[in-house]
């Protein structure tokens, strides 16, 4: 299908006896911001390395822009690895040109593009500085420029926000959204589910080498099917029992707060509460967060337990 930027079909990869990824199906639509979620060691980096053809899958196929990944297609991907690095004793401009030329960009064009990006990031006057003379934050910017310089159709960002200060996190998020608006497909992996919830249109959650769920963020949250209603009020809570509402009731100072169990009509609850003459302070129908859904679905393979196990296995085994 033409609308898939990246498609993995039945992909498995193991290192020795350790399975890093097991029969993974994954489709990243063109132009989407796609989140690959999971705890450390769940198989995110291995998945990304297979998309980039750094590793070959044991089973299954990896397609990029509708074709088996090859050298030409690799040039249309920009990759920001989790472990970031630059040549310390090289000037910024030389470094950027080098990275872009490796992606097939002509040298003169690479120079022009580098300069205009450096201007945008307010590093124009540092083009001839050695990388080692820059602050950590500036190096992060240079690294990001190196990722997008060759105008990739697909951006793959592995844990892009880890280790960044809040200012740079905001800058990077802004740049990601800007690339998104320019039509670039963006795949990013993170163990910070909240980041994904904020940015992504679609997500795929993996834990312990297996996919737990995937789909658009709104579908995932809606399909969780257990919207929670929260009602805070002053007055006599006895109307609840009279109308057969069952939930978790807590005293909050002068007020009561009710978290309503699943399967109840929340609008009915609000109507009855007003009818009973209660003073309603707060009412909210809340979809579960991705984190809650993930914890629920992943079960024992969830964030903490399986995350730890998988991490130990992947760091112990050979890559």
């Amino acid at each position: 299908m033409q609308d898939a930027a990246i498609r993995l079909t039945g992909v498995s990869k193991s290192f020795g006896a350790t399975a890093a990824v097991e029969s993974l199906d994954l489709t990243v639509p063109r132009g989407s911001i796609y989140g690959l979620l999971g705890p450390n060691g769940a198989g995110k980096t291995t998945t990304i390395r297979m998309i980039l053809d750094i590793l070959g899958p044991d089973q299954g196929t990896v397609e990029v822009l509708g074709q088996r990944i090859d050298d030409r297609l690799r040039c249309r991907i920009g990759y920001l690895p989790e472990e970031r690095g630059l040549y310390q004793r090289m000037t910024i401009i030389d470094q950027l040109i080098f990275l872009a030329v490796l992606k097939g960009m002509p040298r003169s064009e690479a120079r022009k593009e580098s300069m205009s990006w450096l201007e945008r990031f307010e590093l124009g006057d540092r083009a001839d500085s050695m990388v080692e003379e820059l602050s950590k934050g500036m190096q992060q910017k240079v690294q990001f420029i190196g990722t997008i310089l060759h105008r990739p159709d697909i951006l793959i960002l592995d844990e892009p926000f880890s280790g960044l200060d809040p200012l740079n996190v905001d800058l990077l998020k802004k740049m990601v959204l800007e690339r998104h608006e320019a039509g670039t497909t963006i795949l990013f992996s993170t163990h910070m589910i909240e980041d994904a919830e904020q940015l992504c249109g679609r997500v795929c959650m993996i834990a312990g080498a297996r996919k737990v769920l995937d789909g658009s963020v709104s579908d995932v949250r809606a399909s969780a099917g257990r919207n929670e209603a929260v009602l805070r009020f002053r007055g006599d809570p006895s109307f609840l029992r009279e109308n057969g509402f069952r939930g978790e009731l807590q005293r909050r100072g002068e007020s009561y707060e009710l978290k309503l169990a699943d399967g109840t009509d929340s609008r009915e609850l609000l109507r009855r509460a007003i009818q009973a003459g209660l003073e309603v302070e707060h009412f909210e129908v809340r979809q579960p967060t991705l984190r809650e859904i993930f914890l629920e679905r992943a079960g024992k393979k969830g964030l903490d337990t399986s995350g730890h196990g998988a991490y130990a296995a992947s760091s112990g085994g050979a890559l």
Partner: peptide, 14 residues
């Protein structure tokens, strides 16, 4: 140096 500065992670995608 390429290994320890992690530049190799970037290079290997190209």
């Amino acid at each position: 140096e390429e290994k320890n500065s992690d530049i190799v992670e970037v290079l290997i995608s190209s």
